[in-house]
């Protein structure tokens, strides 16, 4: 009762013979893992799309909230910073302060959503994990895609505010349209890599400690205050600047400020810092997650 088994078209990566063996807390063979991960990427995209669809079925305003929520939050922070902190009186135009808070907060929320959605991705995918064999890293990847889809609509909104507001406010020093804005896709790419690393880290932690996502709410708030979102990197000098470098999102948020608000080329040290952190987060998160993912089915 044998037959010849050949992979059908489009299934060339499907292993015909699979061998399951004992493992310790170590990585599986990465070549096959990554091939399978890449082959099933469509699942991560569709999972993100369907999760979004399921969420919006009950919310008529739907996508509008995605933009409105960080926008209103930015206004609140702006009022806090300018009225209570009196930063506008320090010489810069109030609009420039608002523009900085807006772009930094939008970028920050992209990373924070990766952490929040990613943190819950494995524990929420319980049934799927117990019943299907697939590279589990697709679940945090789906969280990254979901966070990216929520971030993208905020960009044109910001762009309009940035251009129109900058032109209307005579005191504004915003650079307007300039070549340095070509760095924006690179910034988004680095935030996405960092965000994926964070999603992998928190997803694994949440499997072992189910209160991680609750603690993350407070942790993320603290992290936000320590990042150049409500303040600008130039406000800090001397050895205090270490606060920017030891913060995994510090360099990339500084780059965001330099490109959007100052209209300058970010220094190579900032690029080095941001790319090193992105790579470190991806490798650490990837190792932590993939070396433990075979344990998930037992712990879910």
């Amino acid at each position: 009762m044998t037959r010849e088994m050949k992979p059908s078209k489009g299934e060339s990566f499907v292993p015909l013979i699979q061998v399951f063996e004992p493992h310790k807390a170590s990585l599986p063979p990465m070549g096959p893992y990554l091939r399978e991960f890449w082959r099933r990427r469509r699942f991560a995209f569709e999972l993100a799309r369907f999760t979004d669809k399921a969420e919006h079925l009950n919310s008529p305003l739907g996508a509008v909230w995605l933009v409105l929520n960080p926008l209103l939050l930015a206004l609140i922070y702006f009022l806090l910073v300018t009225i209570i902190g009196g930063r506008a009186s320090a010489g810069s135009s109030p609009f420039d302060v608002l523009a900085h808070i807006l772009v930094a907060l939008f970028t920050w929320y992209f990373a924070q959503n990766c952490m929040t959605f990613g943190g819950a991705s494995v524990t929420a995918g319980g049934k799927l994990i117990l019943n299907q064999a697939f590279p589990r890293a697709l679940l945090p990847l789906s969280s990254l895609i979901g966070a990216f889809q929520k971030f993208i609509p905020t960009l044109p909104v910001y762009f309009i505010i940035f251009l129109v507001g900058g032109a209307l406010d005579s005191k504004s020093k915003l650079p307007g349209l300039n070549w340095h804005l070509l760095w924006v896709p690179v910034i988004i790419g680095l935030v996405a890599i960092s965000g994926f690393g964070l999603a992998l880290l928190f997803a694994t932690m949440n499997v072992y400690f189910r209160d991680t996502s609750k603690l993350m709410t407070y942790g993320a708030r603290m992290w936000l205050y320590l990042s150049p979102v409500l303040w600008v990197p130039e406000m800090i000098s001397g050895w205090h600047r270490i606060i920017i470098w030891i913060n995994p999102l510090g360099p990339i948020l500084s780059i965001t400020h330099v490109v959007w608000i100052k209209g300058e080329n970010p220094s190579w040290t900032l690029w080095l810092g941001a790319s090193s952190w992105a790579l470190a987060l991806l490798l650490a998160g990837g190792y932590f997650f993939i070396s433990r993912e075979r344990d998930f089915a037992v712990r879910i």
């Binding site: 015909l16 063996e21 004992p22 995918g125 049934k127 117990l130 299907q132 064999a133 075979r294 089915a297």
Partner: peptide
Amino acid sequence: RAIAGILPPTEGRIIVNGKVSTLLALGVG
């Protein structure tokens, strides 16, 4: 679950020749 590759063996090994489809619990995923 072990045959499907969801749970790794503690000892021994499983060799599976072919594409596996699972219907392990109702309403899977």
